[in-house]
Structures are given as structure tokens and as C-alpha cells.
Design a protein around this nucleic acid. Structure first.
Lengths: 243, 243
DNA sequence: AACGGTATTGCGGGTTCCCGCAAGTTCCCT
DNA sequence: AGGGAACTTGCGGGAACCCGCAATACCGTT
């Protein structure tokens, strides 16, 4: 087994190193990196068949790293190790995992024993090991009823970036009315009609547009990181389209 | 010295314990807790004169804990230990620190040596020790030019919660026009006029209202945590005002 | 081939928002 | 007292947004 680890927190990193060395005897290779760029760089050598990734890293996240790795070597076994079950990440992962790939998702809050099991499950037994809580989020994201469709998610992204209806229409190549339609169904999915707060006079006290962002954030559908990434995509599109 | 530590990450917690025990010999008392509620609970005993706090904790943050502690014992020495220099936190702290209090703010990314110095500086020498990066954010927040006034911050909060102009006016007890004025000056401070993106045809492609949220988030003026807290305040206000 | 589900698009009207102009207030500083 | 900065408030218009109604199109199923 040839293992690559990417984790920005130094305490967590050394913890992982100790645990991994203790769990696996026949470790042919073990490299530790502290950011996404370093991980991708290290992976270039082609030495590794197993990767352990922290999701939240500055600049390049674990999801980005996984994407690059799987693009080059789709059978690489990857275990994600993260703080929370942020839907923004989970959604990102299920979208990029190749059919053949083995992967796992475990929370940092899990006891050491579970982490150990996940390590062996994914890297040795080649099983997919998904933490129960994460599994729940995943199911919700797939479910058409409470989850957002791809189109609605795009609309949410554009909305959170602060685009106008017109700009959304231009970006997505649809009519103005369509962009607005997508927003409407987004609002509905987020529960913006029969909104909480049934208390009398404050019925119309929410602005759908901004309230949608608020809800998306508190529900973890989007987070500041994801936003920054979307911002970059937007910038790229804008320079491309004006050229 | 009687020290109380609150830190939710178990690795960081045990690291702190080791470091603290190694730094201070004459430690009369040392307690570790893993969340804000536990810290407040433990502090009730009145045994502690020094506290080491992680800022980001679920439910009750380090800022909340500090507030409660200082309300009861304003001379308690507190050292904040946190991941980032989130303006939302820094702003919160400078607002609640009593005149007489000694406190410090150090980043988790700092080398052990600096943390050790901060521990001794704050708890023994009774100096205020503020990390250089944090200091920068602090200054920016105090600076009228780039920082937000209290009123503008309120407007931002309301905006991010998804309130309409009318609702903001009602909540803050001002006229509709005033609420809008506050928004305008907020937009200006956030740089929503001479916005980035000078690229030709996309001049009016941003919706001020939502773009403001986007900027606030990416600039770290607000984060998901802070938002959740504001949401609670809002709920409280709504039930109070309808009663 | 008929059919429900999903998405796109136009139209039109009511609402909300953005903001320039201008007058008034409060408070602090010299 | 006077000057000034920050804040409030009204008015009014132009732009943006929300959304119901309705026609059309595409797709996989039966």
C-alpha cells in the first residue's frame, strides 16, 4: 500500500501519521502534505494508490484534489476525513466519484476506532465506507423532494453570488423568464412559501431573494468556501464571455 | 494559577493540556471542557482566574463564553485560540472586553513557541497579547473608512437574514426610508458602487442586495455561525414584538 | 401514439427596491 | 455659538423582482 495524506492542521496530521503507521504494517510508502496543491504535486509521481484527504483546506479543497486524482487514476482509493457534513461538500463528492472508484467519508468527530475501521475498509477491503450522518445528507441531496435539482442549484449559486435575473439568464443561456422560473422553484424547495414564522403581521417580512441565501447557508447547502469557488467560476465565465 | 480550557477538538485539547502542564509548574487547578456550555458551567464554581478558549465551538461560541465570564468576573484573564481571523469574531470580542480585563488572541497556525509566549504573557505577565494578523483585522474594524459602523452592521445582519426593508424598519424602530439609507451606506462601504468587474456590458449585472451578502461572506465580515446567532436574536425579537 | 412530468418562454401587473434631492435632527468639537 | 459629521425622513421616479396564467417543447413510460 502506498499512501498519501493531505491535512492542513498539523496536530491532526501527526495524529493521522501515528494512527496510520500503527494500523498498517506493510506500508511501502507514506507521504504527508499540508495543502491541496502539495497533494496534487505529490500525486504526480504516480506512486500512490491510496489517499486520505481533509476536505477543508485553504485554496484547493479535498474535493478539488480528488477530482484531479480521479481524472488521472480513477481506481485510486480515497478516504475523506472532515469536520462536518456540509452538504456543499457531499454534493460535490458524489458528483465526481467515478463508477469504479472506492471511497469513504468519515467525520473527525468519530472515535479513533471508527477511523481505523474506515481506513481498513476502504484501503484494504476496498469497500465504500460512508459515515451514517453523511449518508443521511447524501440521501437528502439525491432525493428530488427535499433536495435541489442541478438547475436549481445553479440558480442558487448565481443568486448567492449576487447576480441579477438578467445576468443569470445570460450566464445560463436562457430567457429572462426562465431564470426567474428557476428561482421560483428554488424558493419553493427551500420552503420560502409556507415559511416558518406564522406569527400574524409579519407575513411578508422576508425578501425571497435574500431569505433564500440565509436558508441555504444555515442548512449547509452552501458555505463560504463553496461560494468563493463559485465566485471564481463566475469570474472565469465573465472574462470568457466578454472576449 | 487556576486554569480552565474550552476546546472542542479532542486532539487540540490534549495538545493544549500537555503544553500547558509543561509551561506552568505551579498549576493549582486545570480543567478541560469540550464545549461552551461546559465551560460556563465549570466557571460557576469561581475557581478560575485564567481561561483559554477556542472561538469556534458548536452552539455556544468562545465569544459567548467570554461574555458570560467577564460579566461575572471582569478581571479574568482570557486567551482566545482560534483558526482564523474571522472579522465576525474579532468584532465580537473587542465589543465585550471590559476595560480592566487582560486578554490575548492567538491563531492556531502560530508555532508552539508563540503560543507558549502568549500563555505566559497573558496569564503571568498580565499583558494583552494580540497576534499580528488579528491586530490588522481589528484595526480595520475600528477604522471608519473600511469598517462598518454599528448601524451598518445591524443593517447587514438584517439583510443577511432575509428581511425586507419594511421589516428592518420595524425591527429597528425607524422609518422605511431610514432603513433604506442604512442599506445604501452599507452598500457603499462594501464597495458595491465602483464594483469589481469593470468589463463592459456587465455593468448592472449585480443585485446590490444579494451581492452585499456575497461580499460580506467572502470578506469574513459575517459567517454561517454568526448568521445562526443573528437568526436566534431575530426569532426572539419577533415573538417579543408580536406579544 | 397518447400521456404525465419537467422545462422553457411570453405577457402583464402588482410589489419591492434603489437612489438622487433636499430638509431637518442630534451630537461633538473648537 | 458656530461648524460639521453622522443620521433620519419624505418624495418620487425608474428599475428590478415576484408570480399567476398559458402555450409550447422534450422525454421516458405505458
Amino acid at each position: 500500500m502506498r499512501l498519501l495524506i493531505a491535512e492542513d492542521d498539523k496536530l491532526h496530521r501527526s495524529f493521522l501519521e501515528r494512527l496510520v503507521r500503527h494500523t498498517f504494517d506493510g506500508l511501502e510508502e507514506l507521504t504527508l502534505t499540508s495543502d491541496g496543491a502539495g497533494a496534487i504535486e505529490a500525486f504526480r509521481s504516480g506512486k500512490y494508490d491510496c489517499v486520505l484527504l481533509d476536505l477543508q483546506m485553504p485554496k484547493i479543497t479535498g474535493v478539488d484534489v480528488a477530482k484531479t486524482i480521479w481524472a488521472k487514476a480513477p481506481t485510486t482509493k480515497i478516504l475523506f476525513w472532515s469536520n462536518y457534513t456540509e452538504e456543499a461538500y457531499v454534493r460535490g463528492i458524489t458528483k465526481i466519484v467515478p463508477d469504479a472508484a472506492v471511497y469513504g467519508y468519515i467525520l473527525k468527530s468519530a472515535p479513533d476506532e471508527q477511523l481505523k475501521l474506515a481506513l481498513q475498509g476502504v484501503f484494504v477491503a476496498e469497500q465504500c465506507v460512508i459515515d451514517r450522518e453523511v449518508r443521511g445528507v447524501q440521501r437528502r441531496a439525491d432525493n428530488r423532494l427535499s433536495g435541489l435539482s442541478e438547475l436549481e442549484f445553479e440558480a442558487l449559486a448565481d443568486l448567492c453570488l449576487g447576480l441579477t435575473d438578467k445576468a443569470m439568464a445570460a450566464r445560463r443561456n436562457v430567457s429572462l423568464r426562465s431564470a426567474q422560473s428557476r428561482l421560483q422553484s428554488l424558493y419553493q424547495k427551500l420552503g420560502l412559501d409556507k415559511d416558518d414564522i406564522p406569527s400574524g403581521e409579519w407575513g411578508a417580512s422576508f425578501n425571497s431573494r435574500t431569505r433564500a441565501i440565509s436558508l441555504a447557508l444555515t442548512q449547509g447547502i452552501l458555505n463560504a468556501d463553496a461560494l468563493r469557488r463559485e465566485e471564481e467560476k463566475l469570474q472565469a465565465w465573465m472574462s470568457r464571455s466578454s472576449a
